[in-house]
Write a protein that binds this DNA or RNA. Structure first.
Lengths: 414, 414
DNA sequence: GGTGATCAAGCAAACGTGTGCAATGGGAGT
DNA sequence: ACTCCCATTGCACACGTTTGCTTGATCACC
């Protein structure tokens, strides 16, 4: 059986068809792709060496004579040769490519994180595929499948707010993965998260210190880890001050201004409307502030408002928004650095928690009184990486640090 | 020579080495990649057919028996088989991948466009690489090289605000390319652009109608196509009203609120500060509004402000911003649709111009008077796609006939 | 019952790169 | 001069697909 197969494959037909195909191939190459990119073999021909030698020369292998290598590099340069990442990916089984799954890049938080990820990825020779899930389970499945087919080396997910069949699907891919500001309870997944509870609690405590007692909470759609934790921080602050949690005062929007405005309008129509609002994020706060103004009330004289994220527009709102700063860019970088370790086989910190920082601006003031000197910014907590590698990692990329950050001991000075 | 080669390749060693390697491959497969993804050959083995048959079955080729195809698909499904896009890309020379080069996705305009692009790309089975240039020529070169090595089928660039050596570099790649809101004067490059002049002129005319005469312009960094055109529209409006253009009143920021605020502060310190400001975009307007408030002045009572883009926050500013709407998402989709045609070999409209729409809100009012009924939105112009492809394929001369169409007469209705 | 025609499936090559191993050649050591 | 070693280079694969051509088999038709 085997004999027969082998003799058959080695008999005349093979040689004949082989040669004919070679001719056919040569004759049809030209019409197919008029001007294809030069390949490694083209360079080899030009340099009068074999293509493996070119390959080695271009990756600075010590196996090739320095003089030859220099000559080859010069020729390759002149010919505008660019090695094909797809061919390389096929043989090395590593594409140096990662996928970024995001609800939508139109969300400023997501695009901030994306920015940091792209930066870190690019610095390490990785390219990133952008995939929007649109908070649609069907589409999320589709894009993840697409990433799998493209053989990405890793995946970063932020706000994967859909079905629970999602994680198993990703796990089945057997691809290193890092979550940003999301987490599957009970499951062990690598993640980078902001200290949601701490941040939300700090904001609420700040309101309490200003004398507020009727403090509402306007959240995101419920069910997400981030939402749950921020609500929890709010509750903790209330409990700490001996204020009973009132479920009527905890409503939810959709993470965007419009939905939040609608939710806030309802709150303001109640018999005892809140004098302060702790918001899920800045987008929410923006909508809440509009609802307050639409009611003919003033911020912060009548109602104080806090946000979360410190997006670029927060300080430009009127009044400037008191909020909890989230170093989005840095978090993206951290997620990518973490993923790089995972992909390299090292095991890294599973869950990195980034500390939140309360930024007090003009949208919060004493209850029913004009705010006096609340406008200076102060640090509630300092961004600090709990990972042991923080010292080393930070020395390299300090882009986020150079921006608006001040580092130093964080202490309340209000 | 040839004879020798042929005889060698057809002689015993081939068969032997073939078998030996097969064994070796099997024995070293395990240690190298503990659980590699199933390949088409694995499926073939399972289905007891050859791998080409599997290939054809999976792409619904009519060459394979429907029953066999069904069986193969079932087995592939069960094995969780996902074809490797990288292997496919190697043989087909098409990666179904496009590159998106953007200054930074943190910019809301860019992320809006990116969103549309990603949507359209994904709908057509394309994946998109995200690349930030950071307005840095060095980095821009680097990311474009990376895209080239990854063999993207096409490239979309938005705000490529760097050196003039850039376009030649891209052209050398010989890759279909579409620009969004950017264009190289004198060069023939496919692009999707907003009607910058029209939009800016409409905004300025709106201010003039409200009685303003001292109207300033706060721009972006100069030298970009978009900036030049918007400034030009502003000048046209002034000229139309017989107002002399004052170079002192045309300053520039950096496209972000901070820079714009600084520029505006300087303007407000002059002997005769403007009573209205036409801004390059909404980010600029946001900074300008803060500078006005910081000076103790009110918008629009003391100074009116217009923006450009209609970003999500525009209507939530206090007062809500009068601005020129730019359908970012749609523009991204259009760019991608255009690129798809280019990649398919069809020739499409070279330059698509999207009409701008003035949205009047509360940030503009009569000069030195309280605004009365300016809050309703009205349409200045309607977005309308100049799609000649729906009618008929352009008959060759796309330059003369299908160049920069503008369908729908943009007429003032104020 | 022979002869094409048609359908189904397999063979062999190719895409462009990386890499283990063999081959070549020259110099050093004896 | 012979052997051995090392530096350099080439050969022959492999990676996982797609696809042109060939082969086998079935079937209708004369």
């Amino acid at each position: 059986m085997l004999e027969k197969d082998r003799s058959k494959s080695a008999s005349a037909p093979q040689g004949v068809s082989g040669r004919r195909l070679a001719q056919a191939g040569a004759s049809r190459r030209a019409p197919r792709q008029p001007s294809r990119q030069p390949s490694i073999k083209d360079i080899a021909r030009l340099a009068r060496v074999s293509h493996p030698t070119v390959s080695r020369a271009l990756q600075n292998s010590p196996l090739v004579n320095p003089a030859t290598a220099a000559k080859i590099r010069k020729i390759a340069e002149a010919a505008g040769y660019r090695p094909s990442a797809v061919a390389r990916g096929l043989v090395t089984r590593r594409t140096r490519t990662v996928g970024l799954v995001v609800t939508t890049v139109a969300d400023p938080f997501a695009s901030g994180v994306a920015c940091g990820i792209e930066q870190a990825a690019n610095d390490h020779g990785y390219a990133v595929f952008l995939a929007n899930s649109n908070a649609n389970a069907e589409r999320e499945r589709k894009v993840v499948q697409a990433l799998a087919e493209r053989r990405v080396d890793g995946i970063i997910v932020t706000s994967s707010r859909v079905g629970s069949d999602y994680l198993p699907m990703l796990a089945q891919l057997n691809v290193p993965m890092v979550l940003v500001n999301d987490q599957y309870p009970g499951e062990f997944v690598h993640s980078v998260m902001i200290a949601n509870e701490d941040g939300s609690r700090a904001a609420t405590e700040h309101l309490i210190e200003l004398g507020h007692r009727r403090i509402a909470y306007v959240g995101d759609r419920s069910g997400y880890q981030t939402e749950t934790e921020r609500l929890e921080g709010y509750k903790q602050a209330l409990a700490g001050a001996g204020i009973a949690f009132d479920a009527e005062h905890a409503v939810h929007g959709d993470g965007w201004p419009g939905g939040a405005a609608a939710a806030m309008e309802a709150l303001l129509k109640t018999a005892e409307p809140p004098t302060a609002v702790c918001c899920y994020n800045d987008m929410t706060a923006m909508g809440v502030m509009r609802a307050i103004r639409a009611r003919g009330l003033r911020v912060p004289e009548d109602v104080s408002v806090t946000g979360f994220d410190d997006l670029f527009f927060a300080e430009f709102l009127e009044p400037p928004l008191t909020t909890v700063r989230q170093p989005m860019r840095r978090m993206g970088e951290m997620a990518m650095e973490n993923l790089l370790k995972l992909m390299a086989g090292e095991d890294s910190v599973a869950q990195v928690k980034v500390e939140a920082e309360l930024i007090v601006r003009g949208s919060t003031g004493r209850v029913h009184a004009h705010p006096s000197d609340q406008t200076q910014e102060f640090k509630k907590q300092v961004l600090r990486l709990p990972s042991p590698s923080s010292a080393r990692a930070d020395s390299g990329s300090d882009r986020s640090g150079g921006g608006t950050h001040r580092s130093g001991a964080g202490r309340r000075n209000g």
